[in-house]
Design a protein around this nucleic acid. Structure first.
Lengths: 232, 232
DNA sequence: CGCTATGTTGATCCATATCAATAAGTGTGG
DNA sequence: CCACACTTATTGATATGGATCAACATAGCG
């Protein structure tokens, strides 16, 4: 089972087009580690020694400053993270911790940079990936600078509903405490925000969310392709 | 004077390493346009037909949603913008307008993508540039999610002081109304924030700012390399 | 089954937005 | 070069979104 994850990694956009020999070279120097839940794998400011790939489980990226903490994103399989720091050989800007027991593949950053110099296809894939990451953060920035917390929650629920298949009912993928920090609010405020959305047909029971009438909620949330679309 | 801007563009990290023939090819299909102040050159949602380069003047990127507006960044010569949209051939996420009369070089996006496919050096330069852009937005996101508006202003002033040479006095590079939106606050709140920073030795007269004792202000602002350093 | 972390609710406080009025610039045309 | 118009900046009064503090309920988990 040692290299059973190769095909999963190879299937990622980032690695699917590169030359076999380069992919093999990267995989040979990489290794897999299994982390228990709630382990801080990366601390912001650390030098970026490895490109990380979440094979199973879940990881969240968070930041702290002056005793405060916020969550930047949660990462689910199969995807990479901290690509930008790896490429720039610069310190991590975000910390990362496991949410669940997780298998993580680690590729030494210097090898990633070496192959990046040698393989044009890989370099191009990295560009696409980075452009995607950049646009995601810009959207997050718009979300937080242009919307109130209630509007952010409403749009989050609409995105989540779509992501989970479009049915009226779905489960929150992370606990509410974390969702609050992800949305830039406190857990108490999130609780009240859920109640406020009852006026637009949203009911919550534990992690379960039910949206009675999507259009009703959309009239309030005013989702925008330029903020809420993950695909573009 | 038609192609007098070639050397300036060539000097940018993004273009300095690529093959001469590819650079020439890009320049041949590019052109320069002079815009008066306050012209909206790009509207969010538009398709990304050109990579833009600010040769002189100043441009700001801003976003709107539901009748609200925020400023994302201001761009001064010589630098490119909307690289990510160009690369992904995706709609602009941000609008852009000139602040002053500005000369802008425009390179058709499809040519950028073509050269990006053909020139490994150019692809690598784009990666570095995108990684830089990504990290800048992440820092902005941390700034706004972890700090109060007063703390954001204090750190902005410290950054600006450093950027302008480190002397006690310097001028704000943009008008306060815009600075407020850039920092995620209202102009009224910015006015009050400046007064509040008097307690830490900051005095303001028009666009002129004076910081009596940098360390005093730093004790309050707590600048961090992982938020406030432009270079890394 | 009990402990601990998570979630909810209420009361209150604080930061920031909004509304309104005034002052100070800035540019324009006579 | 000045007067007018218009935008920007400031200041005050008030409203509100959201945070904080505290108490309690609930749900996981060993």
């Amino acid at each position: 089972m040692t290299e059973s994850y190769y095909p999963d990694v190879r299937a990622l956009h980032l690695f699917s087009e590169m030359a076999d020999e380069h992919f093999e070279a990267l995989m040979r120097v990489s290794y897999v580690q299994t982390f228990p839940p709630q382990i801080e794998m990366i601390t912001e400011g650390d030098s970026s020694d490895f490109l990380h790939i979440v094979l199973s489980g879940a990881v969240e990226q968070f930041c702290t400053w002056n005793g405060r903490e916020t969550i930047m994103s949660t990462i689910r399989p199969i995807s990479t993270f901290i690509l930008a720091a790896t490429i720039k050989d610069a310190p991590y800007l975000m910390s990362a911790r496991t949410l669940e027991k997780s298998r993580i593949a680690l590729i030494p950053s210097q090898d990633v940079r070496a192959v990046f110099d040698a393989d044009g296809q890989f370099a191009r894939a990295i560009v696409t990936e980075l452009a995607q990451c950049y646009r995601s953060v810009v959207k997050a920035q718009k979300d937080i600078k242009l919307r109130t917390s209630l509007e952010r929650l409403a749009n989050y629920l609409l995105r989540q509903q779509r992501y989970s298949g479009g049915g009226q009912g779905f489960d929150l993928p992370i606990e509410k405490r974390r969702l609050a920090l992800l949305l830039g609010m406190t857990p108490e405020n999130l609780s009240r925000a859920f109640k406020a959305l009852q006026a637009y047909g949203v009911t919550v029971d534990g992690a379960g969310v039910h949206i009675r009438d999507r259009e009703d909620l959309e009239r309030f949330a005013k989702p925008s392709a330029l903020i809420d679309d993950y695909s573009s």
